[in-house]
Nucleic acid binder design. Structure first.
Lengths: 203, 203
DNA sequence: ATTTAGTTTAACCATTTGGTTAACAAAAAT
DNA sequence: ATTTTTGTTAACCAAATGGTTAAACTAAAT
């Protein structure tokens, strides 16, 4: 054999590709730029990942499998709706502050190529809100919650948590804050958002 | 003079460019594709708009000036917060159903190039929420509303209204609806979202 | 020591892409 | 009628880009 297949190189490529793809998207990213950032020859990218498309998919799948479990937390968990809202909001915002690029990248690329979602749904059989919907119906019947459709509540939870990070430049323009001010606002949202949701739905 | 500067051609170019840019973004769009869709020669694009960048900016500015007044409605209007929420939600969702591409396009391109916002802020001096913030403070003092920061309320209103359209493919994957089902959900949100917000903030 | 097989690089290639040019067509000004 | 200006096109161009190739390199197996 030869120089044991250097896993380090592959990781460096993935890391560089992640950075470039997340900032520039599939169309805006350049293979040369990724190679430069990884500190290697451009041919290596093809040696390890065959094509730009395959390299991109590797990055995208990795990004999605980082995000998906966060979202599924709300759906398949035994706690009450109120607890779910509180935990999810706090956890998710902390998570995004660590990975501020993620939601935007995923949403952007899903819009560019909606077929991606099919491949994903085949791999991970877990994007399903049936359980959550049943739980909402039950808690309404029990008199804990105001009437609301599970889908709508789920959309609202995602919206309130994810949107500010996706629309960051737009919001910064309105709010007229620098990065520090924006970050503070987001920190505040860890409790702010869950209170908002609880007030909206609790009887 | 010559064949009267055919305003029709310019409009056809802008129309085609709008379509292509909105679906593929600045990086994914091809001048040839725009020319084909407009039914003209590629050189014409440069004759009318000089460069891809300038053509893109024309499209982007037009898109932004379509969206901005919708957003400013919440900020500079004499009605109460509750009325604003109701009007804005209903109007805005109707608006987006007519222009489903808009918010995503704008958010995507603002993320790609945050400097755009500067040019915009110079042109239209209206992205300012000071008035809205004061109104929120007043209505809280008057006992109409639960305590909440104006910025956070504004973000929440935007999030609940805009996010579903931006994250459409993601949401469709979770909700497991076809386009019809998605549209129905959005129609429902015209009243659903404002009730949700009112419940959350009203004392 | 030599073979073997995976790793890495520089140079190269075909295609795509934004943009230009020069010639032509048509309408307005003279 | 003819000149002039504007609109339009086909052909062209240089640069960028994703991808390939063939040779060099490295380390383990023989």
């Amino acid at each position: 054999m030869a120089k044991k297949r250097d896993e380090n190189t592959e990781k460096q490529i993935l890391e560089a590709a992640k950075t470039i793809f997340q900032f520039k998207g599939m169309d805006g990213a350049r293979m040369q730029e990724i190679a430069n950032l990884a500190g290697i020859n451009k041919a290596m990218l093809h040696y390890y990942f065959r094509s730009k498309q395959l390299l991109f998919e590797a990055v995208f799948n990795q990004a999605f499998s980082t995000l998906a479990p966060q979202l599924n937390m709300v759906l398949n968990d035994e706690s009450s709706i109120e607890e779910k809202v509180k935990n999810f909001t706090s956890n998710y915002i902390s998570f995004i502050i660590k990975h501020p690029y993620l939601p935007n990248f995923i949403i952007q690329e899903l819009n560019r190529n909606p077929d991606f979602i099919k491949k994903i749904q085949e791999n991970s059989a877990l994007l399903n809100i049936e359980k959550f919907k049943k739980q909402v119906i039950l808690e309404i019947k029990q008199g804990y919650l105001r009437p609301i459709k599970g889908e709508q509540l789920f959309i609202n939870i995602l919206a309130l948590n994810i949107f500010p990070f996706v629309a960051k430049p737009l919001i910064k323009a309105f709010i007229d804050e620098n990065d520090q001010g924006f970050k503070k606002l987001m920190e505040q949202r860890k409790t702010e958002v869950s209170d908002f949701i609880i007030n909206a739905i609790k009887k």
